[in-house]
Simulated scan of single mutants.
Amino acid sequence: MRTDCNLTRLDRVFARLDREPERPVHIDVPKMSRHRVVLLSATLAFYLAVVWAVVITSWLVRLDWQVMFFRPYQQWSEIHWFVDYYVVLGQRGPTAVMIAAWLGWRSWRQHTLRPLLALATSLLLLNITVGAAKLGMGRLGPHYATTIGSNEMGLGGDIFPSGHTANAVVTWGILAYLASTPRARRWLSAVSAVTSLGVGMATVYLGTHWLSDVILGWVAGLLILLALPWFEPLITRAEIGIFDLRDRWRARRGSKAPAPAFPVDAPVLVTPLASPQDDSAAPEPVAMARSSRAPVYLAPGPHTARSERTPVTPAGSRRPPHPERVTRGAARPLTGG
């Protein structure tokens, strides 16, 4: 009799993730080194410098207006269709789905949840920091500008810094951050840099962002990637917590009470009396025990030939007896005049 339990899809996924080793030994988790801290500080200083240059309406704002009046989408209208498609590489929804699919496959192959958790952490930081900056500075875009030469700050807009550019830097840069070898990290860094640069220039071409918006978007995305090693201990604890929750859920499923060995409504067999005259003997109900072996017609297993099966009914004719029936071959009585 088969005793294999049917595994759910979630059980099969966790069984795959439980294979050893859980994380390949040649993958190094980035740490917050002194060089990275210096680079992060310099990038943060450049971020504040760009914001200050826009707030005081410096030469950077004048450059924004010059690029806007140049109208690149009219100067090079033949590539408009290509830019419309290329700018999708900076939209949060499509890029998050594509990168999550790739990192999900890597999590499956490497038997760890770190790639997906790192992506989720970077996107969360992106939404918090860039979203807060957009709402706090409230800058209007080129299509909604009100005064020529002004910085358009504090007027209820939400384009400074560029979300498309920052999202392209983070979502494509996380591939380089999670690269397993230095060579792969260098190549993926170059690819992500070119992709995010193209997305930023595409928004300037379409006239949806100022040039300073794109510059600040690049810097904002780079800040998130540089600060991500600070969140590696949190990612590790989250991964351990998910597996602990999985183990408790499995233990709760395994602690359920087993089914009774005998059915509650089992038929009752009454034993006959010892003798008709003995009134002391009373019928004793005895529960009919289930046979240790299931009937042949219910037993699972490979198909057997008819000659190997145990007959369910006794051998012989299945036709009920009849008092007037004459067996075949016997002489019939002769009647008639």
Rank of each mutant, 00 (worst) to 15 (best):
A179G: 05
N151A: 06
R293F: 15
W210M: 09
H111C: 04
P321A: 15
Y297S: 11
M1Q: 10
T95P: 01
L117Q: 04
L234H: 05
S107V: 04
K31L: 15
V67M: 09
R92A: 13
V55E: 09
Y144G: 05
R248P: 01
S212R: 00
T129Y: 13
P320W: 13
S291T: 12
R328K: 13
D244Y: 11
P283E: 05
Q277K: 10
L245T: 04
S122K: 04
P24C: 04
D279S: 09
T304Q: 14
E239D: 10
L223Y: 06
R34Q: 15
A96M: 10
L197D: 06
L225N: 00
V270N: 03
R246V: 00
I56E: 15
R248K: 07
V13P: 00
R290N: 09
W230R: 12
R2H: 10
A145R: 02
R290S: 11
R34M: 15
L178S: 02
P295C: 08
S275M: 03
A282K: 14
V130R: 01
H209P: 00
G200V: 04
S180M: 10
G173M: 06
F70R: 03
M288H: 12
A168P: 03
P24W: 07
F70E: 04
S150E: 13
L48S: 11
M153Y: 04
F160S: 01
Y177L: 05
M288N: 09
G316C: 12
P285V: 03
P182T: 08
R92H: 12
R71F: 14
S196I: 06
V25Q: 14
P285R: 02
P24D: 08
L125S: 01
A257E: 12
V286G: 09
E232I: 06
H111N: 08
L17D: 01
H322I: 02
Y297Q: 14
G149C: 06
Y205I: 00
E232K: 03
T203I: 03
I27E: 10
A266E: 13
I128A: 09
R325V: 06
A299H: 11
S162T: 01
I27D: 03
L135G: 08
A289M: 10
I148W: 13
A266I: 11
T121W: 01
L17Y: 05
L63A: 07
T8H: 05
A118N: 03
L60N: 01
R62K: 13
P333L: 13
V169I: 12
A118D: 03
S162C: 02
